[in-house]
Amino acid sequence: MDVIVAGDRAGLAEARRTLGIGREAPPGRAALALVPTMGALHEGHRSLIRLARERADHVAVSVFVNPLQFGPGEDYARYPRTFDTDLEVCAEEGAGIVFAPSAEEMYLPDRQVGVSAGKMGTIVEGASRPGHFDGMLTVVLKLFNLVRPDVAVFGRKDAQQLALIRRMVLDLDLPIEIVGAPTVREADGLALSSRNRYLSPHERTMALALSRALFAGAEQGRPSEIRRAARAVLDAEPGVDLDYLVLVDPATFTEVGEEYAGEAVLAVAARVGTTRLIDNVVLTLG
């Protein structure tokens, strides 16, 4: 399938006209689904595109490494950029549009207004990366406004990101359905991530402690037992520099108490060598 590549607003409008997007979709289906990415596409992204195709007649994939969500000293400059390969992935998975804007196309030089992630943007991942979620929500809102999808698909590996996007859609009355897709893992349990390519073979072996910790916690019943079992696995791997290990409410990302009942997210972030990785599993307690 040929993919239409759009680098600006005019290209997006032309792509919509070419594909006939805007006509009424059949009952039960959306006209257009969006899969926002920062490129360096892997099997996890493929699964998002496939899910988007199930939900809509047409799929757009955005490829944009967003400078607003990288802090000082983070990996914006070296973040993997593999656009030609990304295009091949999008074509193979049946995406109709790839929106690949420049930073100059996305942001005015005197940009002043953005989205605030509020309190949830300052805790857990937000505490480690101040301003990250403000930048993420700002670009997601801009992508929604530019691409105008009916559905947007995000991976659950970035669980706090997904929670904040759902909250933005609710708070700002955006007419978009947000779909969360399961985390895709390697056979040995490592969650797929574009940053995995930074890992040396030895570091990759050490990184398996993150998923092992989550799976060990998931075998327990009470919050204190879950946290204790997961932490024991991480403490036993000296090559893992733990940032946080939390058991939280999936809607608010606040820590759950011992008597909590319902769905919860056990989330971890750690540095292995120079690479910072995140992962999580969803549990049902009580």
Rank of each mutant, 00 (worst) to 15 (best):
V179G: 01
G273Y: 11
R129L: 10
N196H: 05
E125R: 02
S211T: 12
R195L: 08
L164Q: 00
R9Q: 02
D150N: 15
S193M: 07
F64Q: 01
A207K: 10
A236Q: 05
Q220N: 03
T183Q: 05
D171N: 05
S194L: 05
M136I: 15
Q160N: 05
R156K: 05
K142I: 15
E258L: 04
M136Q: 06
M1V: 08
P201K: 12
A33N: 09
V147S: 14
L174G: 03
I21Y: 03
A267S: 11
V147A: 15
Y198V: 12
R197G: 11
F215H: 03
R50F: 09
E263C: 07
L266E: 02
A267Q: 06
V3M: 01
A10V: 10
T205D: 14
E225Y: 04
V139K: 08
A152W: 01
L245P: 00
M120I: 13
E258K: 13
N66H: 03
F253D: 12
V115C: 08
T274I: 07
L19C: 04
E105D: 10
T275A: 04
G121H: 09
A269H: 00
G118N: 13
K119Y: 15
Y198L: 06
A270N: 06
G217E: 07
V179A: 01
R271W: 09
R129Y: 10
P80E: 07
L247S: 14
V63Q: 07
H132K: 10
P250K: 11
A6F: 00
N145V: 02
P27C: 03
D249K: 00
Q112S: 11
I226K: 08
R222Q: 04
